[in-house]
Amino acid sequence: DPDSVIKHPLQNSWAMWFFKNDKTRDWKDNLRVITTFDTVEDFWGLYNHTLPASKLQSGCDYSVFKAGIQPMWEDAQNKKGGRWLINLNKSQRQPHLDDLWLETLLCLIGEGFDEYSDDICGATVNIRTKGDKLGLWTRDASRNDATRKIGIKLKESLNVPPKIVIGFQAHSDTAGKAGSTVKNRFTV
């Protein structure tokens, strides 16, 4: 059985990042790479040995981005991009958050966005008392067709009910503003 001897290569190499909100330190110092991986087996090894997102302290994030892209909008490969954002209310963390995050990761590493997979930079889950957030980051917010197709695919893969609308925000609109005031460029 070849599955038992050969690791299955991924199209991309990915880095998993952890952010812990320590106000005594600079924002960038709170952001660390946990590890990088480029095979299916190494992904599962990592996933199975890290704390589920729902068990992280409030203020923490996990991010999984293509190797070479930092999980911040200032990165050259994110700057012109944006994110599809799924807001969860407090009661959704226990039943849904870990499943949603895993499904997002499977779409990323499996190149689940078909011909638009090159538009993907990564994904982030933010654990927050007021409500967790899951974001799928793309590299160019001006690519309307790609952005919309990615949103549709994300919503479908995560089994988001049709009546729930998810929005896409350009990082250039988000930078320096409170979340509630940012307009959606697209919704699906």
Binding site: D3, S4, H8, P9, L10, Q11, V40, E41, W44, N48, E103, L106, I109, G110, E111, G112, S117, S157
Partner: peptide, 18 residues
């Protein structure tokens, strides 16, 4: 070149392989 693609079921199957 060809893109290396895995669907959900294949990734889940490989989760449980030795």
């Amino acid at each position: 070149g060809t893109r290396i693609v895995y669907d959900r079921s294949r990734l889940m199957q490989l989760r449980n392989s030795p």
